[in-house]
Amino acid sequence: MTSVTGLLDLRRTVPQKYIPVMVTAGLFIAMFVAGGIRYEGFATGQIILNVFIDNAFLLVVAVGMTFVILTGGIDLSVGSVVGLSTMISASLLKDGWPAFGVMALVLVIGAVLGLGMGAIIHYFEIQPFIVTLAGMFLARGLCYTISTDSIPIENSTFTAIAQTRVDLGGDMWVSPSVLIALVVVLAAAYVLHYTRLGRNVYATGGSEQSALLMGLPVARTKIAVYTVSGFCSALGGLLFAFYSLSGYGLSAVGMELDAIAAVVIGGTLLTGGSGYLLGTVLGVLVLGLIQTIISFEGTLSSWWTKIFIGLLLFAFILLQRLITARRR
């Protein structure tokens, strides 16, 4: 009974739009506290930083996915684009290309792939699901035309980035990838909240028809979000290459689903128009922390990660349903 009235009070003081994000934040804190009580050496800052280090690429990919989902779309190609990016990087580096040239090229390829898919989705009015599914097969297939084997990366710039530790004091450190991911998150949050493009993303997700009638550039917005997502996937691919120091056609298989799960757990509505980037960050952290807890548990197989993610997704979709139902 008290918990019910507590929830009611919460609803009166906090605007309803923040509730999904707060639920995710509460879940994250609860998981961290529970882990700290159960396992020795768990409740340290480095544990959270490790989650960031291990999931920096996912975070960047999920940021792009957030843009797409906010417009009410979906991008299934991101995992394959991550894989393709690692392959292109590894093979070009092996051929002796300069590191920064490779990075720029990979980012451009990702953005162009996204742009193409966005244009097809908009101008031919085809479901994003189908178009990005095609993009997914295309990018994955291209990986194997490069090589069917894993290609190690021995470029000095890449290995330097991979091995650098940025000290934060108190024995805590992060990788440069984490910093890159955080910059992406902050930039994306700024774009979503403080620029016309960002607001048009929300408007398009709220009602595409109305956005058109209000004179907003819906075409440009829709194409832009897929371009952003393609760019983020390519950047995520570079971070993944730093992380694994190899390129492999089978890497990041199914990462699109992890990214979608993170976005949904972060409280963004799949129908579009509602959600925050902070939620996506928390979503990625929750997914990462589940893995950490399962590795601390030691006896559980890693498939339990999937089971927990599945259960969480169910719970969060139901929560969204309840909130939208009440709003009506």
């Binding site: 607001r199 048009n200 408007a203 709220g206 009602s207 109305s210 956005a211 009638l213």
Partner: peptide, 14 residues
């Protein structure tokens, strides 16, 4: 023909 998910102010100004 407005976006119900945006705030009142935004709907006037978007």
């Amino acid at each position: 023909n407005l976006c119900a998910n945006l705030s009142v102010a935004e709907n006037i100004f978007i």
